[in-house]
């Protein structure tokens, strides 16, 4: 019992931090540029495929560095040469553009790497159990994922609060026109921010792609959930994105271990003709996948600015 609780907790944290890597990029881009980057999960997928490919050519550690940089550069180029042309036309144009881009990336990946999952394995140097409870061992790689996520955030925090460019980015979050009038090149800062946001997704792809299967549908399977995270946490709030990511990660992982049904929870047994019998007899683990969406709807209905957001979404 103890080992399953610890594992659920650690797995929830690992998954939550992965969600945060993705949603913080989305949050960074949204809060500064007002762009809802629909292609965020596609950049995540691209990170996983590039990670796989570079690892095949060289090794994992090179991939961990090069793939996110490549994804970030692609993101910056997209902003600089394409997306920036739509900013003056408002959010619908931007959203449609990133929507189209997400499909282009998915189809491009299928053309290059095929429609089936690729064999993206763990680096041998991290493929060992790191601890065991009651004879059940826990993989070191999962702990490594956590370390990478936390390290990236520490890095991002230092970049945004302690460096000159970070302070300029923060200023541009609140008033980009003024930052421009003070002599800072806003289009270049936008490209940088979009690139960093995409690179964060790229990191998530490289570290998450090998334990969550690298395949063309991976963008679609994670895409909606990061928007859920951002809505629950509050649009444009990094703290909110962190809380919501961990909440969803822990909740989903915990629920998948629950075999008890709603009816069982309250201790009633239902006759074969009872209304909602199917629903009430479902084990709660079956409801884990829809839980985040249920939460999102509750948040939108009763607290539209999210847990920690400043603007109504």
């Amino acid at each position: 019992m103890l080992h399953s609780l610890v594992f659920v907790l650690v797995n929830g944290l690992v998954y939550g931090l992965l969600l945060f890597l993705l949603s913080s990029g989305l949050t960074l881009i949204f809060s500064m540029m007002g762009v809802l980057n629909f292609a965020q999960a596609s950049f995540y997928m691209l990170g996983a495929y590039l990670g796989y490919q570079i690892m095949a050519w060289t090794d994992y550690w090179v991939a961990l560095f090069v793939a996110p940089v490549a994804v970030g550069l692609l993101g910056a180029a997209v902003e600089r040469y394409v997306l920036s042309k739509t900013h003056h036309r408002g959010q619908v144009a931007e959203l449609l553009l990133t929507f189209g881009l997400s499909y282009l990336i998915v189809e491009g990946v299928k053309l290059v790497w095929g429609v089936n999952a690729v064999n993206y394995g763990m680096p041998p140097s991290l493929n060992f159990p790191i601890f065991a409870i009651n004879g059940v061992s826990y993989p070191a790689y999962n702990v490594f994922m956590m370390v990478v996520s936390v390290a990236i955030f520490a890095l991002l925090y230092v970049l945004l609060t302690k460096t000159r460019i970070g302070i300029i980015i923060q200023a541009a979050l609140s008033d980009r026109d003024m930052v421009g009038m003070l002599g800072h090149n806003i289009p270049r800062i936008f490209a940088l921010v979009f690139g960093i946001g995409c690179a964060l997704a790229g990191v998530a792809g490289v570290v998450g792609g090998n334990i969550l299967v690298t395949e063309p549908s991976m963008a679609l399977s994670l895409g909606p959930i990061i928007f859920v995270v951002v809505v629950i946490g509050g649009m444009g709030s990094f703290g909110g994105a962190l809380v919501a990511s961990l909440l969803i990660g822990l909740l989903q992982n915990y629920m998948t271990t629950l075999n008890v049904s709603l009816a069982g929870l309250v201790g009633v047994s239902l006759g074969s003709h009872a209304p909602f019998r199917e629903l009430l007899n479902q084990p709660l683990s079956q409801l884990a996948a829809i839980m985040p969406y249920f939460l999102m709807i509750l948040i939108l209905a009763f607290r539209p600015k999210g847990l920690m957001g400043k603007v109504e979404s």
Binding site: D177, G180, M181, L182, G183, H184, N185, I186, P187
Partner: peptide, 8 residues
Amino acid sequence: LPPYEIAR
């Protein structure tokens, strides 16, 4: 010119 260039 864009504002940042005018500032410069």
